[in-house]
Amino acid sequence: MTKKKLQAIACWLAVMIVGFVLINALVYVGVIDAFIENMLVTIGINIILATGLNLIIGFSGQFSLGHAGFMAVGAYATGIILQAMPTTVGFFVSIVVGIAIAIVVAIIIGIPTLRLSGDYLAIATMGAAEIIRVVINNMKVTNGAAGLFNIPQFATWPVVYIFVCLTTAVIVNFAHSRAGRAIQAIRDDEIAAEAVGINPTKWKLAAFVLGASTAAVAGSLHASYIQTIAPTDFGIMNSIAMLIIVVLGGVGSMTGTFFAAVVLGVLDTVLQSFGTLRMVIYAVALIVIMVFKPTGLLGRYEFSFARVLDRFRKKKEDAA
């Protein structure tokens, strides 16, 4: 690997560690209270969900509206397993089980539906997620419509923070590899992609499955942080909320997804005091941003340490 790339990786690791230390310090001195911590965890979980969805929509060009279904799979895996095994080991086992089930479900849903294009795919995946929800709603082990409560809390903010870093690294590294180029080629022109030897079904499915498994992780974290889950937490409106983050940030921009998740998380917290008017303001904000910034807040911009380092080096050379 080139020196430049290693430096960029080192920068990212440094950012992650500094962020962690910084939040820890702020919690310690009391700047971050339970209220803000709750906001940070929600933002973190939304980042995990939305980066995975952005991989599916922005990179592979497949319009999926069923992300909440996979989140439900992870949440219920954790909720159920933690009842039988209320230990840290149980928590991690439940995450793995959630991922495994999400992969199987994503393959079952993806093989027939990923042949559909555009809005047809959106509506089919939305339907599939609703089917998952109805099934959960009618199962005994999931406690039906009442849901599960008193789930032990293992997903504290440091755990969520680490998972945000992990899943983002997985998604971004996937997007910037052979696989990432293949799915972007399919997005830009499926016929041409096939003509250069790319198997569209295989690669679309790969992106879909990866996105689904990170959504399951987010579901597990959600279940063990909030400690209560019910089928209504994973409806169409929840899938749409994730879609909003992706589009607001800029389809295809992971930086944008982070930015939008933070902006929306803060906005939501600030608007808490407005009562019923909260959602009206939120709706107007959404419409206004879309009308004036149709490609999202950041468009297709992607922050890259490699580029920043390049510029830095050039300046140094110019100065020398």
Binding site: F174, S177, R178, A185
Partner: peptide, 29 residues
Amino acid sequence: RLFHQLSVRENLQAAMTHRYKEGFVSSIL
């Protein structure tokens, strides 16, 4: 029919997808 949002280099590398292998684990790590 180019992959219009990708760079020239990426266009060519996408066409090489079947010529080399990057395992999932080694790509993400």
